[in-house]
């Protein structure tokens, strides 16, 4: 019985101290990439629109 309790404790420690920080890093990296990508996409779309407008004005 004690053996099983120790095994459970070992697994719990592994999850909390090894998998946990890796998972937190993964989620923080995901948030960083999502925010950065949204900012870049908005900027590029704005630039594209501005250059299109400029081209249209030049044609006129």
């Amino acid at each position: 019985m004690d053996h099983f309790i120790l095994m459970d404790a070992g697994l719990g420690n592994f999850v909390v101290f090894v998998v946990g920080p890796i998972f937190v890093g993964f989620v923080i990296g995901a948030l960083y990439l999502i925010i950065k990508s949204i900012v870049v996409i908005r900027r590029e779309l704005k630039n594209e629109k501005a250059s299109d407008n400029e081209n249209n004005e030049q044609i006129k």
């Binding site: 090894v18 920080p21 890796i22 998972f23 890093g25 993964f26 989620v27 923080i28 990296g29 960083y32």
Partner: peptide, 18 residues
């Protein structure tokens, strides 16, 4: 420091995949 390194490993796995 160990937790930070583990966090970097987690973020690094995602960055490599991307």
């Amino acid at each position: 420091l160990i937790y930070l390194i583990e966090g970097c490993i987690g973020a690094g796995m995602l960055f490599i995949a991307v």
